[in-house]
């Protein structure tokens, strides 16, 4: 246990879980039941979509990294150039704009009645985030492959008759890059939460509260955009000039404060976990 706490990543994972638990207990005691249910649903929905983003990002990045590698090695360079061009184009689109259009598209499909299953909605939302996040991951995988290709063991394994696919998938990416991949996935999880909350907030505030609440599942971003939550957050500003009001924040403005805290605390904790993990493994 002492050893675990010494590690920055494990320590922050513990702090995050303890923080969430404490907020949960406080909310059970002092937050009204409908709001508590909304916050719980929003938290789990956000968490689920972020996890799906991690999975899709990993699959997309792995697939595209392999495709680029084998196309690069082939005689005909045109497909490689086209794929690189397409990926660079996606890179040039600001993530938030791309994801916003993805969300609008999913929302339109839900409204038109084409998709109804929450699992499918979550998956599509996650996919639209992954599409604008996975490219950095492709770069990482390509760097790892390029690094190991320069070493002797790569040629030695090829001479021994081991297929290139196995060397890359198993020996380079799985056996020798697992730590790098896991570290990147932790960062992707943080980015997914940030982007998801931001897009949901923007859609709820700017496009239409009605459309969002009907068509898309409640997330932390959409909860934060609710007028009650905004009033709760505005109360923080009031407290800055009226410090005596601080006590009321934790009882009367609990919903907005809980959602804002969960978002910020999660982002901060994920950053420290990724950082600690990288430090521990000297990445």
């Amino acid at each position: 246990m002492k050893q675990l706490l010494k590690r920055k990543d494990s320590r922050w994972l513990g702090i995050w879980l303890a923080g969430i638990l404490l907020v949960g207990i406080w909310d059970v005691l002092f937050l009204n039941r409908p709001a508590l249910l909304q916050v719980t649903a929003g938290f789990f929905n956000t968490f689920c979509v972020a996890l799906l983003v991690v999975v899709f990002t990993l699959l997309l990045a792995w697939g595209f990294a392999l495709a680029l590698h084998f196309l690069d090695a082939g005689r005909n360079r045109t497909p490689y150039m086209l794929l690189t061009f397409a990926l660079n184009l996606i890179r040039s689109i600001p993530q938030i704009v791309g994801i916003l259009f993805g969300y609008v598209g999913v929302s339109a499909l839900v409204e038109a009645g084409f998709i109804r299953s929450p699992v499918l909605i979550f998956s599509l939302l996650a996919l639209s985030i992954s599409l604008f996040v996975f490219i950095e991951f492709v770069d990482l995988l390509r760097e790892r492959i390029a690094h190991f290709q320069k070493l002797d063991f790569y040629n030695a394994m090829r001479v021994c008759g081991i297929s290139e696919g196995r060397v890359i998938n198993f020996d380079i990416l799985w056996k020798n890059s697992r730590i790098h991949i896991l570290n990147k996935l932790i960062s992707v999880f943080g980015a997914a939460i940030f982007l998801q909350c931001s897009v949901d907030f923007i859609i709820s505030v700017g496009l239409s509260t009605d459309v969002n609440s009907v068509t898309l599942p409640a997330t932390m971003g959409s909860l934060l955009a609710k007028i009650d939550s905004k009033q709760d957050i505005l109360a923080i500003g009031y407290t800055l000039t009226h410090p005596a009001y601080a006590g009321n924040l934790f009882f009367e403005h609990l919903m907005g404060l809980t959602v804002a805290f969960l978002v910020v605390f999660t982002l901060m904790s994920v950053y420290h976990i990724a950082n600690g993990y990288a430090e521990r493994h000297r990445l």
């Binding site: 957050i233 505005l234 923080i236 500003g237 910020v264 901060m268």
Partner: peptide
């Protein structure tokens, strides 16, 4: 300081909107 730096812009802005 970390809490402020990791806050999404809208959280910071809404928390001080009444005063600034």
């Amino acid at each position: 300081v970390y809490f402020v730096l990791f806050s999404p812009a809208y959280v910071i802005a809404y928390s001080i909107r009444t005063e600034f």
